[in-house]
């Protein structure tokens, strides 16, 4: 198809993004009049080009942004613009600014845990979340971006008034010792000597991978301040137990023992397994003579005054 005469094209200005916003099409009177400059400016701010000289100017303007191509539509005989990389077509001539905007929109941060990757078969970019095993061809939208809120740099949380000016929430600024610029850092002295009594807080997946402190695979260690009194309180006992458990295998974040006074262990823990033979009624088998002799030997050994080393866990006999 041939392109119509210039004046016709100018008289019927190409509507802005017919596909998306048909309502936005300005209906201009046939004998085009000069619009007031203020209105023209406002229309321009909305991306609507009006007036002969403007259209001419924009047509003559610099080349299309990279990735954009111009073709004449077969049905309407109008030029339109498309971008194969972005999969967008538009009646309006894309400007550098718009391209910049769309490019910037493309760089919206992914939701925490998501990664972009290249599909080797099709060569397309896809998005995956290794923590939830979710995949998507479409770029996932971060809820924080939609809500126009900043995420905490530590934990990745967001919310109204949650993240402070320095980029951390109150909790993270305390945990990671990142106080707001005005305030003094908390003095947390590592406990002197003794075993490394730390509570290891294993964080679940789905947090910023590049965050310095709490992350999907990182572990934040929080030193427990040393108590002054030599008698270990139950809280310290719990912490020490938790530390020992952490040293052995790590704490389940769902385990109440990792953050509360609940004792670490399963249902049977804490029951003295040594006293497995409680005869009485004869409801369970007695140990074999070999076991009896061994238990007797142990009982004699434990009756001896135990050395200091045996009690170094500081929990005494009650543990």
């Amino acid at each position: 198809m041939k392109r119509g005469p210039d004046d016709l094209a100018d008289r019927y200005p190409i509507p802005v993004e017919i596909v998306h916003h048909p309502a936005d099409c300005p209906k201009l009177p046939f004998p085009q009049k000069e619009l007031p400059p203020l209105l023209k400016k406002r229309l321009l701010a909305r991306g609507i080009k009006v007036g002969n000289e403007d259209a001419n100017d924009s047509a003559k303007e610099s080349s299309l942004p990279p990735g954009w191509k111009e073709t004449i539509d077969a049905k309407y005989g109008k030029p339109y613009y498309y971008n194969t990389a972005l999969g967008i077509s538009s009646w309006t001539r894309p400007t550098e600014q718009a391209a910049e905007q769309s490019g910037k929109g493309e760089e919206d941060p992914l939701p925490p845990g998501w990664k972009s990757a290249l599909d080797p078969q099709t060569g397309q970019t896809y998005y995956c979340n290794p923590f939830t095993s979710a995949t998507s061809w479409e770029r996932p939208v971060d809820a924080a971006t939609v809500a126009k809120m900043k995420r905490c740099r530590g934990c990745g949380g967001f919310g109204r008034g949650l993240v402070h000016a320095h980029g951390f929430c109150l909790h993270c600024s305390r945990i990671l010792n990142k106080p707001p610029p005005g305030q003094q850092a908390l003095e947390v002295k590592p406990p002197p000597k003794q075993k490394p009594s730390v509570v290891v807080v294993a964080k679940g997946p789905g947090i910023y991978a590049d965050s310095p402190g709490i992350g999907p695979s990182s572990i934040s260690t929080r030193p427990i301040p040393k108590v002054a009194n030599p008698i270990p309180s139950s809280r310290v006992q719990v912490a020490q137990r938790a530390a020992r458990k952490a040293a052995s295998g790590g704490i389940d974040p769902m385990d109440p023992a990792s953050y509360s006074d609940a004792p670490v262990g399963g249902w049977g823990s804490g029951i003295d397994t040594n006293k497995k033979t409680k005869t009485g009624g004869g409801s369970r088998p007695l140990p074999s003579p070999g076991d009896v002799l061994r238990q007797n030997a142990e009982a004699i050994k434990s009756a001896q005054p135990t050395s200091r080393e045996d009690q170094k866990d500081g929990l005494g006999e009650a543990d």
Partner: peptide
Amino acid sequence: PDFNAMYELYDPCTVMFFFRNKHIM
């Protein structure tokens, strides 16, 4: 006297059965 406490051997006569190092009730 090693087994007196564990097996509660306070009867004048007690007979017990073991098979392959296991007490059979």
